[in-house]
Each structure stands twice: as structure tokens, then as C-alpha cells.
Design a protein around this nucleic acid. Structure first.
Lengths: 127, 127
DNA sequence: CAGCATCCCTCAAGATACTG
DNA sequence: CAGTATCTTGAGGGATGCTG
């Protein structure tokens, strides 16, 4: 996230600042619990809204909608509407979404790897 | 994050459920903007509270304290207090903290890699 | 300097209800 | 079924002041 400054070169620093603030904005969008859980749950599958609702433990209708819109806006998920009655809407990760998913997978692996450490650290801290 | 159920084996399902809910709790602690930015900022360095405050763009005194406590509790950062006047407190990532940092690095790389895609996707969506 | 406590307010998020 | 809109609440987070 740290942007090199290239001070004294021809690089326009205003551009760098814009890019940096945009990067932080993307990071803020993506670095939140629900977004990451949705990405992890989607994985390589295609799921309907209601299926996601069931699989993402504890997410409300509203939060799911909001986060899916945000992920769609950033081009991380594709949204396909089938104009049937009742409507059917399917979500799937895009290429960039899959890319992010790999990093979320790594976070999950990290959780399992240090699970015991974390648990004991908590006990030490709390006691 | 998905825990295999091993249905019909000797594995105690209650244990699995406890582990699963703990994993989700850890994930919720860690998967938030400030925690990840702090981890990324610390990197391989050792920083004082005030240095972190300056380097983590936009973080308030209170949020920084809260998140550092949380990270300390989970054993991701070490906190060293030098009993001088005025006091000096230094923070550094632990081994597990470094492990998580690698995944955050990957997220940052992802941001830069898909930066242009995301920007254009946003324009398409907003227009 | 770092941390804690207090106050206060905004906005995030749940509940509910209505539409295509 | 999926999405949007409205209302309401309370927790998140800022500002301030005090302490070791």
C-alpha cells in the first residue's frame, strides 16, 4: 500500500496521491468482514442470492445486498439476472475476484495454522 | 474457513462447532480495515505508538489503541513498555503476525494489479 | 508519551413492509 | 425470489480531559 515517492523525478506527485487514495479506498471496501466472507463463500461456484444468504453465516439481507452491489461495482463479482417469475439472480467471482479470493484463502489458512497460538494468547491476556 | 464435518466419525461435532465459531471470531477481529493497515504498516519494523499514529493514515488515537490491544490479545503484536519518563512503548509483529502480514501483502499486491480494472469497472457501474 | 475514561453524536445495520 | 425504501436503534468512533 505504500507508494514510492520518486521525489525529484518527472512523475507527477499529484497522480501518485490520487492513485494512493484510490488504493486506500479499494482497500477499505474490500477489507471488511462481509466482503471477504462472501468472496470466500462464492469460491469457484455460482450461487443465487438466497443460497449466499444461507451459506454466509449471520449475514442479513441488507448487508448481503449492499456488499454484493459494492463487489459488483468494483468488478469482483458478476451478477446475472434471469428474467423469470420468480426472478433468479446468480453471483459468481470474476477473474479479479478470484485473484482476491486467493489472498482470502491464505488468510483462512493462516487462521487455522495459528489457531492454537491465538487461543492460548487470548487466555494469557484475559487472565 | 469451512470446517469439514467428518460426520459419522469419532470426531466430536461440538468441538468442531466451537472451533468454527472461534475461527469466525478471529476472522472478524482481523478482517477489518485498521487491523490490516496496522499490520501492513508495522511490517518488519518496530514502531512507537506515536510513529504508528503518524504512519497509519487517518487512524484516531482511540482506534489505534483499541486495535493494538486486540492484536496484542490475539498474539499478533508484541508490546514493549520502557519505564522511562516520558514513557516509550514499542510495537512489533510476532511470528504469527508476520504470517498474517504476508497475506495482507498479497492483498495489497492484488490491489495494485487490478487497480485499472477496478477503476474502469467503477466508471461503468456508476455511469 | 501513552493510556484510559467520559461524553456525545453520527451512521451502520436490523426490522419491517412493499414492489416487480 | 430478489431488491428497494423507510424507520429506528445502538454501537462505533471522534473529541476532550485526566493520569502515571
Amino acid at each position: 500500500m505504500v507508494t514510492k515517492q520518486f521525489k525529484g523525478t518527472a512523475v507527477d506527485e499529484a497522480d501518485l496521491r490520487r492513485a494512493d487514495s484510490l488504493a486506500r479506498e479499494i482497500f477499505s471496501d474490500v477489507a471488511n468482514k462481509w466482503a471477504l466472507l462472501i468472496i470466500e463463500t462464492l469460491g469457484e461456484r455460482t450461487l443465487r442470492f438466497s443460497e449466499l444468504r444461507n451459506e454466509v453465516e449471520g449475514v442479513s439481507h441488507k448487508m448481503l445486498t449492499q456488499n454484493l452491489r459494492m463487489l459488483e461495482r468494483n468488478g469482483l463479482v458478476d451478477r446475472t439476472v434471469y428474467p423469470t417469475v420468480p426472478p433468479r439472480v446468480e453471483y459468481t467471482l470474476t477473474v479479479s475476484g478470484q485473484g482476491l479470493r486467493k489472498t482470502v484463502d491464505a488468510m483462512c489458512e493462516w487462521t487455522h495454522r495459528y489457531f492454537a497460538d491465538i487461543e492460548s494468547s487470548r487466555r494469557r491476556f484475559d487472565g
